[in-house]
Amino acid sequence: MYSILVERVSKTWSGTSAVEDVSFTVKAGDLVVLLGPSGCGKSTTLRLIAGLDTPTSGRIVIAGQDVTELPPAKRGIAMVFQSYALFPHLSVGENILFGLKVRKVPRAERDARLAKTAEMLGLKLLLDRRPSQLSGGQQQRVALARAIVAETSVCLMDEPLSNLDAQLRLEMRREIRALQQRLNMTMIYVTHDQVEAMTMADRVILMRGGRIEQNATPAELYDRPGSAFAARFVGTPPMNVIPAQAVAGRDWALPAFGTHVLGDLSIGIRPEAVRLDPAGVPAEIVAAEYLGADTLIETRLGNAPFVARTAGRIGMKAGDTVHLAWSPGDAHWFDRASERRIA
């Protein structure tokens, strides 16, 4: 059963299209991440679902109701904005209750819901403060509380953690995920941070240039990226995608399917799948980055940068030659022209 259906939705701003022919569904209770670089149309897609913008064409259905023409308030959604959009003149409590007051929820129920939400998010002692008296993380919690107190089944999040520091971001993404599962909310979460996408999502929708590049679970996205773009976008450091001629003559590295000309292909290897092996492809070290648990060795292979990740410290420096190898099963093959996955 799906909770949100987006069907062939496009959005054009005076001639330039921000979102082009986007279709996907979100299962009830799932957390779906819209992932992509800036300008890929992920935030626009979210705003179309929220009703803050209207699509040029296409249809949006939420909980069985066609909401394409409905104003945001009638769509049964809550939203957390990147800037939090807290009302600076209202106290935390009033901010959280703003929507319930507008919707004329009776006072007793309002108070009960406020108490419950404040408890859940640890805001009980802050209810009388103004947003300007809170830290960034606390403001984020208030924004979350405002979305949760509405008790809508669908919650939209527009890069909610991008204004927080790294440590806080780690905590908040766990907390948001836990809340989402506990309250069984359907959530669409926009981010450009692939770590957030991989750790939080039930499904990831990767976008590029206003279109969906791949719609998959995090594991699928990592294991079988649908295109060279998806391969490079997910994983740190990103997958090495290089022209296939670089491995010409190495029988173990050639594709198992024989119908392609090597010049038309790209080969993709994740840095963590590369091992140092005397039988491997020789490459010169450009730089070595020691990270503690492992070392990133940057080399050049077929004139393209190629990164290998090895455990621990290696006693080599720039200018040395290493031999790189991987198991054939770890190789991803892409068509060089279209960038689509072949095998």
Binding site: A85, F98, A150
Partner: peptide, 11 residues
């Protein structure tokens, strides 16, 4: 975004 947040709440 304040206007948008308020619109979402039905104000």
């Amino acid at each position: 975004t304040l206007a948008e947040a308020a619109a979402l709440e039905g104000a």
